[in-house]
Design a protein around this nucleic acid. Structure first.
Length: 726
DNA sequence: GCATCGGATTTTTTT
DNA sequence: AATCCGATGC
């Protein structure tokens, strides 16, 4: 079997496991994704499962896309119909098809974290509760946790007064969502689980259809996800899950690595397969990782091993403050490139909290070096992007009162809070949503309402007519054209482009959103809005940009980089202060560090800072307790030596783009020939070639190379990205 | 209805 | 330090 030829025996065992519940416990870098991909291909190619009978659930859309491509590579074109996506996206799609069984209709929109907190806030106000005592954020977190545990408002367990308050808010929160024909992230899982539990016909339909279910990152499933998986697998019992308890980092989101243990209880016959060999990291990196994770209790000890050899030691560097730390990060990267150990795309800078990225970004910018930052929030959280999404949501679903509230006076149409409040009141009296009332006001024969015979009422009607126009366009036109109409009708560009630098940037974001929308020519507005709501941070990564990646430790899950730099290895940051008083949370901090370390293939650089600015105050910091667990013999010799002089001495070069840097580092090296006549090389464009001649000129190496079908070419070694083969 | 000012508050992690 | 919120004044 072709599919199996590149796998080790354990991987083969997993891929070819007989149908039935299967639990694959996979250490970092052990080929987990390979196993899942090959398993899917095996099911379709060898066991002759039809693609539509297979469901594969991944953690990010990016992982899903990659998996799809790799399955296609393995099989040819036979993946049509495969259900492949994140939990949330998969549920969203099924729920839309089964909307008749839900308290929302098929046009429902998905509310993002911002909207969710806004609703909670409004409910808290409507209930006359004290916002200081019941922070919307934290009440929302409690509601979210309840949903993940499958508690509906009426089942919410009440033990304290606070619980009682949360239950009341939850009740109204849920009502508000449904009135807006909207679901939140948690609802996607919750309603799916409820639908499958309560409607036997629906459960049977999907449980019979999905003969095979594959799940990635199983250690990070929550109760809702676990329950719906069990329901989906209730007929065929072919649930194949892959996970690693040591990499469970979403406890605060309801994830419970104990689902791994629960799996073995709930599926007594489950086959358990261990993947232990690591194909990613050097032994020094693995030893560091093990030294960290070994101190956690309640875990099965695991030995990570590789055939890659010891590799280089771990570097630990100390900075005076976080600014210097950032400079040091850039300096380290420059140094590694200069020594030709890596190229810009090989680096990742990881941190515990998003706010830590700022100084690193500034350091890159002041060195005139580009980088990419993982984080969907950066783009989708922008005001202008949110405005336009709100417009689109309103067009798709006029019942969405929250989007209406956002856009009704943006840009200003002189419809203020009072007029809007009146609209809501009258809509309430007529038992319709404000959006629908707005559409009625725009109609041929607007209802005779005293409250809207005013100038303000005229303005409402005018906006209603706009909405009506876009709604009509929505019936026939693709999303991007609706967006264009909205932009034109609201004169949005004039509104945001105020001549400032910011204004142009905002318009750039609009253009980018327009570009994204234009990819939804055929699938329509709802699909676009759904994808926009469910993008994960990793999805925003552009792999073709070969520059360093900046990301949180959480976002690093599932990724790998040749060189990993972790900053802020300090007490209070990693582990984070907020976890100090909770032993379970402290174990999770450790796992988080472990996840970061195990992303590294070749080099690991740890950084900590002696001081930091917090809320405007300068305060001392301690190095992280985790250092104490890293054996001395794994650390590079210069570790811990203060390096201030390095940065102060101006060795941190300013104003040098990556290309220049690489060219320069190449020329430094090119004092002797790296290529010799007769050697075979591979060129990204021309493919395989034969070196005819090599000479040194101006500190660089000039090559004559013969390419099959192309002819003889003169190339500069440092610029042409040649690789030796054979 | 909108702009401005001053005071409070902020830093976990994300679909 | 930077942002958010509410109160105040126009």
């Amino acid at each position: 079997m072709d599919i199996l030829k590149s796998l080790n025996p354990q991987q083969v065992r997993a891929v070819t496991a007989k149908p039935g519940p299967t639990l694959v416990l996979a250490g970092p870098g052990s080929g987990k994704t390979r196993v899942l991909t090959h398993r899917a291909a095996y099911l379709i190619g060898e066991l002759k499962a039809r693609p539509f009978q297979v469901m594969a659930v991944t953690f990010t859309n990016k992982a899903a896309t990659e998996m799809g491509n790799r399955i296609t590579d393995l099989l040819g074109q036979r993946t049509q119909g495969l259900t492949l996506g994140t939990f949330h996206a998969t549920c969203a799609r099924i729920l839309r098809m089964e909307a008749e069984h839900l308290p929302v209709n098929a046009n429902y929109v998905i509310f993002d974290a911002d909207d969710q907190v806004k609703i909670v806030k409004q409910v808290i106000r409507d209930l006359n509760l004290d916002e200081k005592r019941f922070r919307p954020q934290s009440v929302h977190a409690a509601i979210s946790a309840a949903k993940n545990e499958l508690y509906l408002p009426e089942d919410f367990p009440i033990q304290t007064y606070r619980d009682e308050v949360v239950a009341r808010v939850y009740q109204d929160y849920q009502k508000t969502l449904l009135l807006s024909n909207a679901l939140d992230f948690d609802d996607l899982l919750l309603w799916m689980a409820i639908l499958l539990s309560d409607r036997k016909a629906v459960r049977d339909k999907y449980a019979r259809r999905y003969q095979y279910i594959l799940v990635d990152e199983f250690q990070d499933t929550n109760m809702a996800q676990y329950t719906l998986l069990k329901q989906l697998a209730s007929y065929h019992q072919n649930l194949f899950v892959v996970g690693d308890s040591d990499q469970s980092i979403y406890r605060w989101r309801g994830a419970d690595y104990r689902n791994v243990l629960r799996f073995e209880e709930d599926f007594p016959g489950a086959e358990v397969i261990l993947l232990e060999q690591n194909y990613r990291s050097t032994q020094n990196i693995l030893d560091t990782a093990m030294a960290i994770i070994d101190r956690n209790t309640n875990r099965k000890p695991k030995k990570l091993f590789t055939e890659r050899g010891a590799g280089e030691k771990i570097s630990i560097r100390e900075a005076y403050d976080e600014r210097e730390q950032a400079a040091l990060v850039v300096e380290t990267i420059i140094q590694q490139i200069s020594e030709r150990k890596a190229s810009p795309g090989d680096f990742a800078v990881m941190y515990r909290t998003n706010s830590q990225s700022r100084l690193v970004e500034e350091a890159f910018l002041s060195a005139n070096l580009s980088y990419k930052l993982v984080g969907a929030q950066r783009f989708y959280g922008r005001r202008e992007v949110k405005d336009l999404i709100a417009y689109l949501r309103l067009v798709a679903n006029p019942e969405d009162g929250f989007s209406l509230a956002r856009v009704i006076n943006t840009p200003s149409r002189y419809i203020g809070t009072k007029t809007f409040a009146e609209l809501i009141t009258v809509a309430g009296q007529q038992q319709i949503s404000p959006g629908e009332l707005l559409l009625h006001l725009a109609g041929e024969e607007p209802p005779e309402l005293d409250s809207f015979s005013t100038p303000a009422g005229k303005r409402l009607a005018a906006f209603g007519r706009l909405l009506e126009k876009w709604r009509n366009a929505y019936q026939t036109l693709p999303p991007v054209e609706i967006l264009d109409q909205i932009l034109a009708d609201t004169d949005y560009r004039t509104y945001i482009e105020d001549g400032t630098e910011d204004g142009y940037e905002r318009w750039d974001n609009v253009v980018e959103l327009r570009r994204l929308a234009s990819e939804y020519q055929t699938v329509g507005l709802l699909a676009f809005l759904e994808d926009v709501a469910l993008v994960s941070d990793q999805d925003t990564l552009d792999p073709s940009l070969e520059v360093p990646t900046l990301l949180t430790l959480h976002a690093a899950k599932g990724l790998e980089f040749k060189q990993v730099l972790i900053i802020g290895v300090n007490e209070g940051i990693l582990p984070h202060q907020r976890s100090f008083d909770d032993p379970e949370a402290m174990e999770e901090e450790r796992r988080l560090f472990y996840v970061g370390i195990t992303r590294a293939k070749d080099n690991l650089h740890l950084f900590h800072s002696l001081n930091r600015y917090t809320f405007g105050y300068f305060e001392p910091l301690e190095a992280s307790r985790y250092y104490r667990d890293i054996p001395l013999d794994l650390r590079a010799e210069d570790s811990f030596q203060p390096v201030h002089q390095l940065v102060d001495s101006g060795r941190l070069r300013i104003g040098r783009p990556w290309k220049e840097l690489q060219r320069e580092s190449a020329s430094k090296i090119a004092r002797e020939n790296t290529f010799h006549p007769g050697e075979k090389v591979i060129h990204p464009k021309w493919g395989e070639g034969l070196v005819l001649n090599s000479s040194l000129q101006d500190d660089d190496e000039i090559l004559d190379i013969f390419f099959e079908g192309v002819g003889k070419k003169k190339l500069i070694a440092s610029l042409s990205n040649l690789k030796k083969i054979g």
